[in-house]
């Protein structure tokens, strides 16, 4: 336990150094375009979407699984919410207030996301399909339902008031950021203080041990995927409000970014390790880098290339941090032979 705790701290420290480093570098090299209120506002309304996806993937990774269906869940819940919203003109004619419509739309999106999460959890526990392949399948399934519902077209025409969630600000702080911080605090609390959180870490470390300690693995897993679905649903609400329309297929590139962020944030894909703090720092690092690449007008292809590279690099760094750096072993080995 002590060793484990030390590793997590070390990881977060590394992330902190990198985070401060990137922010400093950006401020020094691109001060007039990076250090502006507009840039910070645009940055903090961009990341909550994929940040929530990353948080969902992190939760499932902590239990040793993975949820590859988050983007599709968001698409499907987004379509559900958008369908309700798009009926607002008709509904208002019938005397239903826009507030009620917005409430119903949010409810619809969240309920759909919970159903998706529950379905994933059921496939993994009751049917016994490994998470990786189960969510790969539901990824296609959920997106497919979204396409059928919209027949491939975008849905637009939302009530004016709804757009506040995605583009409004409170005291200059964008709403998506406020939602993200609220969710992040809740998830962090859940992981660190609740029985469910504790069980999730234990399950990820050794499912066999939790099973024989009288913990119902299945219940822990289903709850985890319910939460992961819900996070995707919240992301969906932010997305449809910010984009002001819903078109199935939105955000396919977010999946790579979300997995990258989860791993960058110190989550162990084998399970048992990860946390909100590390994830948030990883998100800041990536968003700052992204904004830098945008300012330097890099092509999206180059960005794709860079994200892939960072993902692999970080996996390598993670590996060496847990298994020891090769050079250090070499030096130690050298000293040993020298002494004998």
């Amino acid at each position: 336990m002590i060793g484990e705790a030390r590793i997590v701290k070390l990881d977060n420290l590394t992330l902190l150094v990198i985070m401060v480093g990137t922010i400093l570098a950006m401020s020094i090299f691109l001060p007039e375009r990076f250090l502006t209120v507009t840039n910070f506002q645009s940055m903090s309304s961009q990341f909550p979407e994929y940040g929530l996806f990353a948080m969902a993937i992190m939760l499932t990774m902590i239990t040793g699984g993975i949820d590859l269906s988050v983007v599709s869940v968001a698409n499907l819940s987004g379509v559900a919410g958008a369908l309700v919203l798009a009926s607002h003109v008709k509904a208002q004619a019938m005397g239903i207030s826009p507030g009620t419509i917005i409430f119903l739309a949010i409810l619809a999106a969240l309920v759909v996301s919970l159903i998706c999460g529950w379905f994933n959890g059921l496939l993994i526990t009751a049917v016994g399909v490994p998470a990786i392949i189960a969510t790969l399948g539901t990824n296609g399934l959920f997106m497919g339902i979204a396409i059928i519902l919209t027949e491939g077209h975008g849905i637009r025409g939302f009530p004016e008031e709804f757009l506040f969630i995605g583009s409004g600000t409170i005291l200059g702080i964008p709403m998506p950021l406020i939602i993200f911080i609220g969710v992040a605090l809740l998830v962090s609390l859940m992981l660190k203080k609740s029985a469910q959180g504790f069980k999730m870490y234990m399950l990820g470390s050794s499912p066999l041990v939790t099973r024989f300690s009288g913990i119902s693995n299945n219940r822990v897993i289903v709850k985890t995927y319910l939460m992961s679905g819900l996070l995707a649903g919240i992301a969906a609400i932010i997305i449809i409000s910010r984009v002001n329309s819903m078109r199935p297929g939105y955000g396919y590139a977010y999946l790579l970014l979300a997995v990258l962020l989860a791993i960058l944030g110190g989550t162990n894909p084998e399970g048992g390790r990860g946390g909100v703090l590390g994830l948030c720092m990883a998100i800041v690092i990536l968003q700052v880098l992204q904004s830098g690449l945008n300012i330097l007008s890099f092509s999206p292809f180059l960005k794709k290339f860079i994200w892939g590279l960072i993902l692999i690099l970080f996996m390598v760094v993670n590996y060496y941090q847990t298994n020891g750096w090769p050079m250090r072993n070499l030096v130690r080995g050298g000293v040993k032979t020298g002494a004998s």
């Binding site: 894909p269 092509s299 180059l302 892939g308 692999i312 590996y319």
Partner: peptide, 23 residues
Amino acid sequence: SFRMQALIVTLGTSNIFHGALLV
């Protein structure tokens, strides 16, 4: 070499390969 999950590695490399091809 690093005992990484193939899915995550190939998620990264497919972006590297495709990105590099286009760039």
